[in-house]
Design a protein around this nucleic acid. Sequence first.
DNA 1: CACGCATTTAGTGGATACACTAAAGCCGAT
DNA 2: ATCGGCTTTAGTGTATCCACTAAATGCGTG
Lengths: 221, 221
Amino acid sequence: MTASTGTRHDGDSIHRALREDILSGASRSGEAMREVTLAERFGVSRTPVRQALGRLEQERLLERGARGLFVKRVDAREVVQVYDIRIMLEAECASQAALSRDSSDIARLQGLLERDQSLTDPSDRERTVNNLEFHSAIGVAAHNPVLTDLLQRLSSHLIHTPRSTLSVGNRWAEALQEHASILAAISDRDGIRASSLARRHMERAREIRLDLIRAEFSQPS
Amino acid sequence: MTASTGTRHDGDSIHRALREDILSGASRSGEAMREVTLAERFGVSRTPVRQALGRLEQERLLERGARGLFVKRVDAREVVQVYDIRIMLEAECASQAALSRDSSDIARLQGLLERDQSLTDPSDRERTVNNLEFHSAIGVAAHNPVLTDLLQRLSSHLIHTPRSTLSVGNRWAEALQEHASILAAISDRDGIRASSLARRHMERAREIRLDLIRAEFSQPS
DNA sequence: CACGCATTTAGTGGATACACTAAAGCCGAT
DNA sequence: ATCGGCTTTAGTGTATCCACTAAATGCGTG
């Protein structure tokens, strides 16, 4: 459960907080999001909560059920659909990043990568957040707000699945290697290579995600 | 100006109405969207208007300026970015439609196409709407809500440019031909062909759009 | 005449009160 | 015990009021 007391909350911060709750799994799939309950929890009126919920609904993190809004349930089919699109867009994004990057973009990516490499046994949450940050930084390097925006949206579609793919076996180390090679390609301004590396990186993530889903179905919670 | 009196308006209908205003060009680029003004126009309080404006902001049809929300100004760079992504996604969408379509999808597309072919000298608005409907029907045929949703969002990013590309020269007739061939490929379950036809269709649209933009810059309003 | 400062004001953000709707509980009849 | 209809109630949708902020405006001064 995310903090409630101590900080003053406005619509925007509530949006972020709830988003964080959903993505981190603190709010379980299918759970109801009631305006009054949340308003009490954040110590505000229903108005800003409503604004936040509206946004989350448009981001497809919530769905409207019989009685108000609920945390969206993910189904395997949709997860695959999201990954398929993400594969295309991440590849395109990496390509554009290779062509449009400036030196500060490279520095930022380098910094993130080194930080990740220096972590010893990071938590699942940490891995997820850092991974998101790296991909987001590639988005920045592409200097294409439209594409970046779309990817951001798609990423959050997935993350509220039970566990990230980055805690499976040695996937985290593997992913960092892949990040390193993508970064190298971007740094070399080699759009083709960046694109195909990014594509393979995401395809790999999709495979692992599918394994996770299959495992979840045979051994339900 | 879209209707104000006569019909009762709730948040949702206001959202649609304003959206329509923006996409049709009734609300000019850069124009202010004031809560009180709109509330008066629709004969409701500020509350539902605020909800509608919030949604439109998230759809990137409005942007937050110094003094509230304004109809977003399109810049050439962004238009190209949107088209580039649309090209990819429409191609993928056509491909998936070819693989996933059922007979009712084909019937629907056929119906829309024949309707469009039977029109004599349709208005610019009519062309835009009908074109959107056809593309949207391809989305339905793909049976991929994630992809369809994304495309829907992207389409509306563009349409509030001054004029559609479908009123340039004989582009409308040309577009219908292209629609016909895409439909044929989808009907044949030929994903590869559908994809490349859709890609070319959108690339053509992008070229024309670029011409329009260049023309607009040399002869501003 | 231009510049800086105080004042006004246009406009949004949040709180609260009221209206409406439909699901859930309840009770009696068969 | 079960079904039909009534009542309750949980929950959202809208209206209105107050609070706050920052752009515009006007006024005095150099």
